[in-house]
Design a protein around this nucleic acid. Structure first.
Lengths: 197, 197
DNA sequence: GTCTATAACCCGATAGAC
DNA sequence: GTCTATCGGGTTATAGAC
């Protein structure tokens, strides 16, 4: 692995662990084993390196999520699958955490990959929810954008609750709550259809 | 207002805006108008002052929330009320943001007021949900702890989505999604009761 | 209790040898 | 491309006059 790659890897890890502002060139140098000068040879500065690391972290998460949501299968099962994946809860979300770093949130360039990642997930979720409504699994009264935002928020907020409690349980509870509500309204919709027959 | 109070006020504001790690004694001094030495007279250091400011920020948010959830009234209306309050969305949550600050999350003393605040809200929500189930407004199949975590997570995650998009809309969408799902299952439960008659 | 002065250290960045 | 040495400035904290 070359120096450039080692720098990005070390920075990606540190940004997940500490965020952008709290990650220093010294830590990057120590963890990557790359000399101080090399960092400034490959990148214009900390911000440029952080941008590459941030794009890496977003790219790490998106493919698996997109695959899960776009594969063929029952829409409601896909939503439940999205709400049941394994996460390193107490480490927080590589992508979502960046929104709480004031230097990232106030820097449109650094925030862009985060914004795009959430926009992509939102769109994929909204498509799956629209499918579920078309199949009659969910009531047409439900709004796909609202439901998609609620599902993503449940996960992102679950991290917050779990870190506050230093216990992954609230994260799992929050997701289970969302799954069970979805099943409950799906059941209701199924009953409605039976009643209409 | 005395120096001690001005220091806490300035630090509370700065921690909401920037978090703990990114708030420096110099900024506190400038915003509070209090000299450098005075800060170390009233507090042992930045951490002690931050703890006082953090407790202040938690105390700022809890009373209104507790009042809303413990007042008399229809349980489902109270849940909707909790999911409909006005927030300065793009500033994020004074309390929740702290979980994403690595220096806070790794410091049990600093994290304690955050943990306690979320635990209190969770308990109050779970009580209201239990009332709603007892009244037959919600199905007894729903788990109060799960639903309480889901509701809190929806709000905390809504902040994340809104900051990522630099637009308060995803926050409102997520909350609306939660409200509409709750209404949908409430309607289902009402129908079930009618069918049982 | 409040102030100014300053210490000791770390930050992000640069210079220049190899 | 990689290294060591170093810069100017900011950080948290302390000393000590008033």
């Amino acid at each position: 692995m070359d120096s450039r790659e080692r720098l990005i890897q070390a920075t990606s890890d540190l940004m997940w662990e500490r965020g952008y502002a709290a990650t220093s060139p010294r830590e990057i140098r120590e963890r990557s084993g790359v000399g101080q000068g090399s960092m400034y040879h490959h990148f214009a500065g900390k911000r440029e390196l952080a941008l590459a690391a941030l794009e890496r972290n977003c790219a790490d998460l998106l493919p698996a999520t997109e695959a899960l949501l776009t594969e063929s299968g029952d829409p409601l099962d896909k939503l439940e699958g999205y709400l049941s994946r394994q996460h390193q809860v107490l480490k927080g979300c590589k992508v979502g955490r960046m929104t709480q770093d004031p230097l990232v949130a106030s820097d449109p360039t650094l925030l862009a990959p985060v914004r795009d990642a959430f926009a992509t997930i939102h769109d994929r979720l909204a498509v799956v929810i629209t499918e579920a409504i078309a199949l009659g699994e969910l009531s047409a009264d439900l709004n796909p954008d609202e439901l998609a935002s609620m599902i993503t928020a449940t996960i992102q907020g679950g991290y917050v609750l779990a870190i506050a409690a230093q216990d992954p349980r609230p994260f799992d509870e929050a997701r289970a709550g969302a799954r069970h509500l979805l099943r409950a309204v799906a059941l209701g919709a199924a009953q409605d259809r039976k009643e209409q027959k």
